[in-house]
Design a protein around this nucleic acid. Structure first.
Lengths: 166, 166
DNA sequence: TTGGAAAGTCAACAAGACTGACGTAAAATC
DNA sequence: GATTTTACGTCAGTCTTGTTGACTTTCCAA
């Protein structure tokens, strides 16, 4: 499937354009599957993907500040604020003024928010689990390796700062 | 990293929620890296991701019909039409009336379109190649296996219908 | 005490998705 | 031959999610 050869003690890969294009298409189609289940749930509740992303990371790092979340999501504060405002208004997210630094807003999920988070996460983890099981442990390791190698420096840093599931 | 055990001759995976969440985040951050380089190029030319996707698949299947492209991209014809119209107006895509069935429009890249396609593709393939090289051949195989297992039936069918890079 | 960072607001705008309705031409079917 | 279906295009309106720019309030720290 993929030719390898030894050269100076290292393993070299001969990658055809076709192989690389196929990888690109795999990312495209798989990302659609990846978001399909949460999208259906979100629609029922009148939310979009942006809400999901905010909910996901607030759940992962309870008490994170708006600025931190901004960095993680890679959007402008105006864009995030619109999403955050609706989540706060709807009682899914709580914004607490920082203890030490009172300019900061510490973000937490409420019980209602945590319930939606679980619903979304269970759907997405279900698909991920099925894919992992179908592909096997070696494939899972490879999957993560390639994805990590595909990230920008900054994205990799943010990714590694998350609670580790390795 | 990932625990395995033998049970009835099969390999079972014990996947913690943490591992699955980490996989979800890997997809999120990696997809950002995946689109970063083309996005920069597209911006210079005044196009968006939707244009890139159309250009990519027209290049992959020269002469494909609008309906086929619609299925592949998974958007409405109104949405695709807006993108396609600008690409045709700008002389990047040519729309030829079908020989056999004159209702069909067969889509092709012009020389100008093919040039932009190369520019976009080279950037994206460059990152993919670097990631593949960094991760190694076994990881590449695993990467593709997991992504394929993550697709919906229909997406997998479309994916497999593409020229094969395996 | 003053500069700058953090947070938030308002306004305007654009890309890219959606629905629904309508029209035309060509092919397929009855 | 008439009718229906398919393929495509378009008009109109809406929504989400992103953008920039300008401006305010709060408050920490030099």
């Amino acid at each position: 499937m993929v030719d390898t050869t030894a050269a100076g003690g290292e393993t070299l890969l001969f990658l055809t354009d076709e192989q690389l294009r196929k990888g690109i298409e795999a990312m495209f189609f798989a990302y659609r599957g990846f978001t399909a289940d949460p999208d259906r749930i979100l629609e029922k509740h009148g939310y979009g993907r942006a809400h999901h992303r905010a909910i996901h990371f607030i759940n992962r790092q309870p008490g994170l500040t708006v600025t931190t979340l901004l960095d993680v999501l890679g959007v402008t504060k105006q864009s995030l604020n619109r999403v955050l405002r609706t989540l706060i208004e709807d009682g899914l997210v709580e914004s607490r003024i920082g203890q030490k630094d009172k300019r900061e807003r510490r973000l937490h999920l409420t019980e209602v928010g945590a319930t939606l988070e679980r619903e979304l996460s269970e759907a997405q983890r279900g698909r991920m689990r099925a894919a992992y099981r179908a592909a096997g442990p070696q494939a899972v390791a490879g999957f993560r390796q390639v994805l990590e190698a595909m990230m920008d420096r900054e994205q990799l840093r943010l990714y590694q700062n998350m609670k580790d599931g390795a």
